[in-house]
Write a protein that binds this DNA or RNA. Structure first.
Lengths: 121, 121
DNA sequence: ATGGCACGTTCACAGGTTGTTCACGGGATG
DNA sequence: CATCCCGTGAACAACCTGTGAACGTGCCAT
């Protein structure tokens, strides 16, 4: 748990993407993205867990702050909308990765830890 | 800068293989394996029981969480798939050992010190 | 008040991926 | 050598995710 003073300067950088949760701003190359409240909250939740696989349940309770139901699709819908805006701001980038059966992961690029060596699938 | 709570990060190391159950990651030399949910669960179950002979029944109930039937072959099928991916990541290695009539054992290297007398079954 | 608009939520469908089961045959054991 | 165990490929079922779109709500300007 960070102190209040730390929160004031919370800045998450992922390559050219920068998220400032306390200022309600997400920007690429210093240019702010036009996000809705939910989109921004989801991006923040992902950014705070960068380079980790995060389950839909964890994302849902973090953003929506209510019990997660297994058939809930809201996270998927907002991941799709986020991807669209991120792609528009960073063409050719792939920030939000899907881990089939596990969840999503936000990473600036194809990180070394998750480098896909398996070509036999 | 240290991690907040190291005791909450379960990490199982077996030679060059590393399993992090709570992060949904299994890696060889820091490179993540591309595993499905079942494959990952089975590897985790084996890793948590490393260097021990584990019966199919124990593995099955640990992963599938339902009663084991004697003719059940799911464990075998997933051991095969796991071996294939482990072999691709660690050529020449033999991590999952078969103990005929007893079960499987996950060990970092080949050791022949497992010859049970099996006098009491 | 009325209409337009932006947003959040939910649903339904399609396609692809994964899980489960079966059958066959090779191999280990005593 | 007889028996049982295990490896393996394949087929099908079940599940997961991407996606478009409909619906309801609240806000704002007219």
């Amino acid at each position: 748990m960070a102190t209040a003073r730390d929160d004031q300067v919370e800045v998450i950088r992922l390559g050219r993407l920068e998220v400032r949760p306390r200022e309600f701003v997400a920007a690429v190359d210093g240019r702010a993205l036009q996000l809705t409240v939910r989109e921004f909250q989801l991006l923040t939740a992902l950014a705070r867990r960068r380079d980790r696989i995060v389950t839909r349940q964890e994302l849902y309770t973090a953003v929506w702050q209510r019990p997660f139901r297994s058939h809930e699709r809201s996270v998927d819908v907002y991941v799709k909308r986020l991807r669209r805006k991120l792609k528009a701001a960073l063409p050719g980038s792939e920030l939000i990765h899907t881990h089939y059966g596990f969840g999503y992961r936000l990473s600036p690029s194809v990180s070394q830890l998750f480098h896909t060596a398996a070509t036999d699938r």
